[in-house]
Design a protein around this nucleic acid. Structure first.
Lengths: 197, 197
DNA sequence: GTCTATACGCTGATAGAC
DNA sequence: GTCTATCAGCGTATAGAC
């Protein structure tokens, strides 16, 4: 019975995720994925009978599920109420993973995908990525630790900012991505500090 | 004599830029570009005899030249020494243009392009986009208006931040991109404010 | 400058053996 | 689960007329 969880299928998803995320949907050939797995292109159809599009969508869902769990875990491990530590924990998780550029992915690649599917992915990525981040800022604001006009905007910027770090080549900046994330978060924190009227 | 500046060629570049920037190199078919111009696919080879890759590279160079000029113009028009106004002017320019995601473009699409060409584009985008922004921050820092540890990092973040705004769908956030840019810049400015030890 | 016609390689996909 | 064999369709590119 295909289409269920299995060792081999999992491997396909992981390898495919790597490739799709770094090159985008249309630039990745099924042969590339098969080669990376040392199997033949046609063998992929055992796991994903509907072909490339199904594989891609499953990759995205797989990735989003992992991110939802990873971000929750990062938050659980960070001191409750410490929004700065929480942001850093989430950033650290995001940097440990292949890039998940919600927007870039969704807008570059998904024109080629069925619109209903796109909508579903939109909602899943919203729940997995955006909502938890937004929660951090909202809580910090509610407790008066920060002042911000538009939590949605800042949450989106945060995600984008961290994601951009994935693309910074080592030659551009000598620091590690984690160091850069930390500096940017510190900068953000300064900007959000409450201040006397 | 092809390969030179001409009305038709310019049109091709503009239409192709739009498509390449929103879908990425491999997802755009020469037929898509031709259709948008109401000409036939093969006709593109009159202007770009080397084919798709040449067209793409010329699109990028064309775009970078326009950005270099546009950013300079934006800076010239902003009050000298007013780094905030300068950032806003640059942001406004960038938002008026099709996206130029230096990094996303360079890393998604350019695997399929000759490496030497990639290097050249790297340098051109560095000079056209990064250097002017960096200049703003460096000058502001030199004159003591801001305090920042890593100007390169902040300049890169600024570019990425503005570019991300291109992908924010209207349903996500009711504000205009310019409003969002203004808010983000204000936030950044707060974070960079010098403060007493 | 743009067209028609066409060649050709590549890619996604199917069928069926092991 | 993975393989070989095969194919239809698409996308790039070329040749040459207008």
């Amino acid at each position: 019975m295909p289409n269920t969880t299995s060792e081999a299928r999992e491997q396909v998803l992981n390898v495919a995720e790597q490739l799709f995320m770094e090159r985008g949907y249309s630039a990745v050939r099924l042969k590339d994925i098969a080669d990376a797995l040392n199997i033949k292109q046609a063998s992929l159809y055992y796991h994903f009978p509907q072909g490339k599009e199904e594989l891609y969508v499953e990759v995205l869902r797989h990735s989003l599920r992992r991110h939802a769990a990873g971000i929750q875990a990062a938050l659980a491990q960070a001191p409750a109420g410490d929004w700065l530590a929480q942001l850093e924990a989430v950033a650290s998780w995001l940097l440990s993973q292949p890039p998940v550029d919600k927007m870039s992915t969704v807008q570059h690649d998904l024109p080629e995908i069925h619109p209903e599917t796109v909508h579903m992915l939109d909602e899943e990525s919203f729940a997995a990525l955006f909502v938890p981040i937004l929660g951090i800022f909202a809580a910090a604001q509610a407790s008066g630790q920060i002042e911000l006009e538009d939590p949605d905007l800042v949450a989106g910027m945060f995600l984008g900012m961290i994601n951009n770090l994935h693309m910074v080549k080592a030659e551009w900046n000598p620091r590690s991505k984690h160091q850069m994330a930390e500096m940017l978060i510190r900068l953000l924190a300064r900007g959000l500090e409450p201040r006397p009227a």
